[in-house]
Amino acid sequence: MAKDYTAEIDIKQTFKSYEEERLYRKQRLAASFRILARRGLNLGVAGHITVRDPEFTDHFWVNPFMTSFSQIKVSDLILVNHEGRIVEGKKPINRAAFAIHSQIHQARPDAAAAAHSHSPYGKVWSTTGRLLDPITQDSCAFYNDHGLFNDFTGVVYELEEGKRIAEALGNYKAVILQNHGLLTVGQTVEEAVWWFVSMEEACKTQIMAEQIGSPILIEKEHAELTAKQIGLPVAGKGNFQPLYDEVLREEPGFLG
Rank of each mutant, 00 (worst) to 15 (best):
T6Q: 08
A7G: 05
I9Y: 10
I11R: 10
T14F: 02
K26D: 05
R28M: 08
A31I: 12
S32W: 14
F33R: 12
A37K: 07
I49C: 02
P54Q: 00
F56P: 03
F56N: 14
F60W: 04
N63W: 03
P64W: 00
F65I: 00
S70H: 01
S70L: 02
Q71C: 02
L77K: 09
E88V: 14
A107F: 08
A107G: 15
A113D: 08
S117H: 03
S117F: 05
S117D: 02
L131K: 13
P134T: 11
P134F: 00
I135Y: 15
T136E: 14
D138E: 14
F142G: 08
N150H: 09
F152Y: 13
Y157L: 09
K163D: 00
E167L: 15
A168H: 04
V175M: 07
Q178N: 01
H180K: 06
V197S: 06
V197P: 07
M199L: 07
I207E: 05
I207T: 09
I207L: 13
M208N: 06
I218C: 04
H222E: 15
A227T: 04
P233C: 04
Q241Y: 04
Q241S: 09
V247R: 03
L248G: 05
E250A: 15
E251N: 12
F254I: 09
